[in-house]
Structure formats: C-alpha cells, structure tokens
C-alpha cells in the first residue's frame, strides 16, 4: 500500500511540474492544483497508512480505544484543502482577467514586465 501511495504522490508531482512548464496559463493553474493534491496526499501518508480506530472518545471513556489513528494530519489536510480551494478560485478569476487584459493565454508572450 505504501509503495502504491508513494508512486501516486510521485506521479502527481511529476504531472504538476509538467503542466506548470507548459505555456498556457490554464495548464499552469491545473499544475498548481495537482501540486496541491500531491502535497495533501503526502501529509496523509506521513500519518502512517494503517486501519486503526477513529480517535473519538466513547461515552464513559477517558481516551479513545487503542490503537487509534492520528487525527492531526487529517486536520492539517482539511485546512490545506480549504486554503487551496480559496486560492485556486482566486487564481482562476485572475487568469480570466489576465486573458481579458493582455489578450493572450501564452505565458511566453506575457513578458511585458520581465527584464
């Protein structure tokens, strides 16, 4: 399972870099989204891929039933997904405005401010 997971994360990162290196700004945003997914899966994997109990304290108990899964990385991913969602929504609006203002979606031609 871990090997499969590692391979998927690696492929997602590779795909993200490939998309970001394309010239179209739409593909740049798709690349950024894939990069985010790869990162989220990476954080999920550091919590160990195990089938333990949920970390919920049952009524009357003082601790969750051992062995239980670590809830912190899941909280981290949830936060990262929400932030990533907001930022991606902004980026999509931004590329639309860039396309309207500059008149091209080719990153190689959006270089009026480069030096």
């Amino acid at each position: 399972m871990q090997v499969v997971f590692a391979a998927i994360i690696g492929m997602l990162y590779a795909g993200a870099v490939y998309m970001m290196l394309r010239r179209s700004i739409v593909k740049l945003i798709i690349g950024l989204a894939l990069f985010g997914h790869a990162t989220n899966l990476l954080i999920f994997a550091v919590a160990r891929l195990v089938r333990y109990n949920p970390a919920i304290v049952q009524k009357g108990d003082s601790a969750p039933i051992e062995p239980f899964a670590d809830p912190v990385p899941q909280a981290l991913i949830l936060t990262a997904i929400v932030i990533g969602f907001g930022v991606q929504a902004f980026s999509i609006v931004l590329i639309k405005r860039v396309y309207q203002t500059v008149g091209t979606d080719d990153l190689d031609q959006i270089r009026g401010t480069d030096s």
Binding site: I25, L28, S91, L94, V98, T113
Partner: peptide, 22 residues
Amino acid sequence: KPQMEGAIKYVALNLIASMILV
C-alpha cells in the same frame, strides 16, 4: 495591464512556495 502580467508570476511562484512549505 502591467499589474496583471506581474500578478500572474507573483501568484504562481508564491503558491508553489506555499505548497513546498506545507
């Protein structure tokens, strides 16, 4: 127009940095 051209680079690079950080 220059702002939009600058913004796309600023946004893309900073997003990559954030994801490396997380």
